[in-house]
Design a protein around this nucleic acid. Structure first.
Lengths: 296, 296
DNA sequence: ATATGTTTGAAACTGTAGTTTCGGAACGCG
DNA sequence: CGCGTTCCGAAACTACAGTTTCAAACATAT
């Protein structure tokens, strides 16, 4: 056999590993970058997150600058040349395989997805299977049509209620999360009417008291939307619509990802239904923000 | 002088997209592959799942065969040449990164949740590509070791700070989100020390004032962890660690999903590092919950 | 044995990716 | 206005990636 001595086994073919990531290097130099190199940096940050899949000439073409600019940029960032940067990018991109599961006790690790990424994706997929577009449509319509929207959620679910409110107030008013800090839900109950709508977010580890509020709302005829997970038992009976998402993955903490995605989808759909009026509201907010110069 | 302003518009920059994936092509031909090409195929399947990050010569070196074999393989698989295969691999991986989201509202909402699902998954994938496991490890360790954890975030980012706090207090104390309602961050700055750690969540639509707080923290030597999106410009220079996630999908509202997943991942990793002490804390909390009978 | 057909890597070949050089353009400043 | 400085891209240059050629090595048949 010929096989002289093969190249396959370099002693340590993975040369580098450490050193700041490309992104942080860019950020470090960003202010002092000349125009053409900054254009390149923007392209890398925004469009070509995975440097290793590109050639330098592609990047410069995308940025509309010369190849020379690319060479200069990578040298300025502390690389020997483009190829070294490419290698570094590749070495760095692997939160893939070896992640052990959460520490909570033991098991879990047996059958589940190997990475947190897969776990999240899996939960999303399974959640979508539980949802029907038609129901989402109805719910969004109800939210657009309501005189006032009340949101409720404890613990974990509180963030989701806040998030949903944040999205909704982009294009309509009268959206309230209850209870505010230091208040109890009871204080609001008197305000509910049948032209309002109540959105209850109740993910795992539900708290006592939800039932009572929902019963009270039902008594005055306020439609109820319930966002919960498959472990809910008695709550759905009280709701007019129930949207169920998965939360339990194979890692230590539950995931709110699917619930968050659902909220986003509700908001997007509702925005569509809000039509001209909603967009007008949105533009008004936008304009005010600009004049106040709130952002950087 | 030729065109100074010509940039990104190639006539058809997106070459192809479809056609069987590289893997399935390999499997189709696998049995009929000659030795050297099979070695290459194995390398691709096992070690270089992401073809677009490699050069043909690297592959042949890894497989211990000649470059000629590589050329032959890719032609046999139905590609015009290696470069076409590389492009195909890349196109397949980020179908749809740079696309603009539908005009604020209507358009995109039509298609069912399946597309929003794809959007979320795509954002997750792209975000993961920006993160390095090593840095997450470091950050988690820093959070476990800190005397006290301060969290900060405005607007959208506020929910994330709250969520992260919620996860962290499962296994350790002294985790504070600032500013509380009605307070300004300034009131807390005096308490920062170099044994603390500051986590700043600053997704799109950042608010003025972050810079000042970060500068103040930096002045007293408090390490800073920054969670942000690719559009951040000046902030990363002030942070000790910067974790970047994608937020802009094809729909009207930004997605916090990837940021949330990152928070969960940080929490899971930190929990692992907290070891026995962290678990003890967790059990203590658990026991108290049981005795109080808070849940249903 | 000779004939026919594969498979293979070395080496020649070619194109193009990445670097370097260089002159010009743009800005700053006395 | 001159004189530096910095930034830029065209073009020359170099190196190497990917292709092609070719003859040796091996297989199988006749």
């Amino acid at each position: 056999m010929t096989k002289t001595s093969h190249p396959a086994e370099g002693p340590t073919p993975k040369p580098d590993a450490r050193g700041p990531s490309i992104e942080s290097r860019i950020h470090d130099h960003y202010d002092s970058l000349p125009d053409s190199e900054r254009k390149l940096a923007d392209v890398i940050l925004e469009r070509a997150a995975d440097l290793s899949a590109f050639k330098a000439s592609e990047l410069s073409a995308l940025a509309g600058v010369s190849k020379a600019a690319a060479t200069r940029l990578f040298q300025r960032l502390g690389f020997d040349g483009f190829d070294e940067a490419r290698l570094a990018a590749r070495a760095r991109r692997d939160w893939g395989s070896p992640l052990y599961m959460g520490a909570s006790g033991s098991g879990a690790a047996l059958s589940g997805p190997a990475t947190l990424l897969e776990d999240e994706i899996d939960l999303l997929r399974r959640s979508v299977r539980r949802l029907s577009p038609a129901m989402i449509d109805d719910v969004a319509a109800a939210m657009v049509g309501a005189r006032r929207i009340w949101l409720m959620g404890y613990r974990n679910s509180r963030f989701l209620a806040d998030y949903l409110r944040w999205q909704l107030i982009q294009f309509r008013g009268d959206v309230t999360v209850l209870p505010g800090t230091g208040e109890t839900a009871g204080e609001y109950l008197a305000d509910l009417t049948e032209r309002d709508i109540l959105v209850v977010v109740a993910l795992r580890r539900r708290v006592h008291g939800l039932l009572e509020v929902m019963e009270a709302a039902r008594a005055v005829g306020t439609p109820i939307i319930l966002v919960t997970d498959p472990t809910a038992r008695r709550l759905p009976a009280l709701a007019d619509w129930t949207l169920t998402v998965e939360t339990q993955g194979h890692f230590a903490f539950d995931s709110c990802g699917p619930a968050l995605a659902l909220c986003r989808f509700l908001a997007v759909t509702a925005l569509g239904k809000a039509g001209r009026r909603g967009r007008a509201h949105m533009e008004r907010v936008e304009r005010r923000h600009e004049t106040l110069d709130v952002f950087n």
